[in-house]
Design a binder for these strands. Sequence first.
DNA 1: TTGTAGGCGTTATCAT
DNA 2: ATGATAACGCCTACAA
Lengths: 329, 329
Amino acid sequence: MVSIKDVAKHAGVAISTVSKVLNHYPNVSEETKEKVNKAVEELNFVPNSVAAALSSKQAGRVALLINLNEKTQAIDEIGMQYISGALNKAMELNLDVITLFFFMFKNKTAEELIRYLKSQSITGIIIYGVSKTDKVIHRLIESQEFKCVVIDAPLVNENTSSVSIDHRKAQYDVAKKTIEENNCKSVLYIAGKKNGYVTAQRLEGMRDLAKELNLTMLERDGDFSELQARNITTRYARNKEAVVCASDLMAIGAMKELIRMDIFRPVCGFDGIILMGYVGKQMNTVCQDFAGISGRAVEELQLLMNGQEGRRVTTEYSLVRMKYEDIIR
Amino acid sequence: MVSIKDVAKHAGVAISTVSKVLNHYPNVSEETKEKVNKAVEELNFVPNSVAAALSSKQAGRVALLINLNEKTQAIDEIGMQYISGALNKAMELNLDVITLFFFMFKNKTAEELIRYLKSQSITGIIIYGVSKTDKVIHRLIESQEFKCVVIDAPLVNENTSSVSIDHRKAQYDVAKKTIEENNCKSVLYIAGKKNGYVTAQRLEGMRDLAKELNLTMLERDGDFSELQARNITTRYARNKEAVVCASDLMAIGAMKELIRMDIFRPVCGFDGIILMGYVGKQMNTVCQDFAGISGRAVEELQLLMNGQEGRRVTTEYSLVRMKYEDIIR
DNA sequence: TTGTAGGCGTTATCAT
DNA sequence: ATGATAACGCCTACAA
């Protein structure tokens, strides 16, 4: 393996000089820079990132901490988008990444998790899918031992930024569109998991809308479960004019049940997963660019690692209507 | 950060002794072992894997090299299962893992890829979704610079193992079941991507079956495309009694089109993705345990890294009939 | 502006 | 059986 030492020899300079050139230090003459870069080219040198990580305060290694459902799910595609978006951006920014899932630390304490991360020379973490009851994750964030970027949860401190769309507004928008298109005056709202951060935000958006449009609204906890959404639909949808769901999966459950019940109610979802195109009936939903959000999170993390303070970052979303013909490839 | 040095001091032994205990070297007295382990406990020491990786020929770091479709797809769930299965097993075996996607190296040569992997101290690679035309990947494998485990492609050499189900037999089985259940004498077979390894194997299985059952068979290239499967169905399904597809996505495309055409033909797929449960009509399909296969690949890779020769590993599959009621949660 | 040298946390070789 | 000590490849004061 060709090392910085070889480059130094080839270029006729000292190792440290090579390092300086590679890391864009000031105070290096153009001439030496060229010599070094030429040697790098000729030897096809690629710095060993493991050694760099060990050596010290380099930008730092990043961990993706993902709350994946243990069983396969249609929404696994979201996780995949998160991962690929992050890895892609990380490669661009020259950051090393390791991927971890919540379930790997199921019986571990926050301290054990922290130690593990340190043993991996991790300095920055991106957290996906944390809910209010994930104590270990909260302790991890509060410890401020690492720079963190949290997706979809409003957790911010000096070393922690949050990245997400405006869930309140998005829920408001998609519901409003659906309800106005169909001229409804009453609505069944199937909310997400009780302890989810986004659940509360989306619910808030829905309540705002109900107040504004003077809607009769019935709220039920769907727990992000397709099955539960179906059951709620069975019981409560008949007397309402529309069904607004806090997730696509629940929207699908609701829609399927409505079809079975042989009644029509407009339904809208949230997320924009592919599966929405397969249900037969078109539904409005909120389309998030998961890969983009994840890439944005990596950028934000790099800023944090460079000394920036934690803050709240809001990303864009769009309203879409998923149609089989548009999805099929 | 507590290091091996601290442990040594705390236990009153030399650093090298601690290392020996940690790595289960022979020639260490029970007494010192205990002393060291006690110190490890008390200090909550976790070895720094980055330093270990740098230091030398430890078991080695592993890269997952995944051929992800660039656009979101319903089959992204497969990739997610692959990743989580591998990471889980790797954590169990104490292997470090980095995840990479093919598209990250789109315009890179094999040499560049190899250099990158070396710069990451990678010694073992698991490759998912390689096709016959991925020259860079083939060069990577042939270079034998790394230990490789290839999923679903019969590439084996001294340093390379393959892990997969018996695609020939699985295709044979699922098609046979479907055809016999429906007593068919003619069949439309929609094959996968022309240059895919599994495509050829599955096709072989189908041909064996056709010969055995004396079926009239029409073969078409579906390219693993739902859209293409739909078009093929439009054109050719009417005159056949069954439609056998080399993937679930194509089976879904075919089934949807059959419903639109308002004719019934039994359809079977391959993979066992969740989406199959949402189509309305039940279909037979081959269910692979993607996470399990991926874990198995990690184990195989470890064996390779420990000096074992490359070989072919065949894993189990099962035939299932996906039903919405079974999938919904 | 350039080079020297110490250190990051381990592993592994070689004495003891 | 145990302990010094030299790598591993890179970064970074600090000296020249």
